[in-house]
């Protein structure tokens, strides 16, 4: 099932399916790319940022950024 990264729930895991246009450049260096496994760690309330696990390290993305990343959810 496909979901926006911003819509994933705690503990959910998935694989990055697509990243919107100009954002790809911005997150490429941080290791977030199509085909990468990603796990949701936490979301802050009131439209706060998300924290995800990529390759055993943690990265935080604003909700607007997470909106532009589509994940194929596994679990």
């Amino acid at each position: 099932m496909d979901k926006k990264l911003s819509e994933m729930r705690y503990g959910e895991e998935g694989v990055v399916k697509s990243i919107e246009g100009d954002l790809r450049n911005k997150v490429a260096g941080m290791g977030i790319r199509v085909g990468k496994k990603i796990k949701m760690i936490t979301k802050q309330p009131i439209k706060g940022p998300v924290v995800v696990l990529v390759d055993e390290y943690r990265t935080s993305l604003g909700l607007g950024i997470a909106d532009k990343i589509i994940i194929e959810v596994r679990k």
């Binding site: 911005k26 997150v27 941080m30 940022p49 924290v51 390290y57 943690r58 990265t59 935080s60 993305l61 604003g62 909700l63 607007g64 950024i65």
Partner: peptide, 10 residues
């Protein structure tokens, strides 16, 4: 005003 995008080190 771009949003946050940072690494969280251990």
């Amino acid at each position: 005003s771009p949003e946050i995008l940072i690494d969280i080190p251990p």
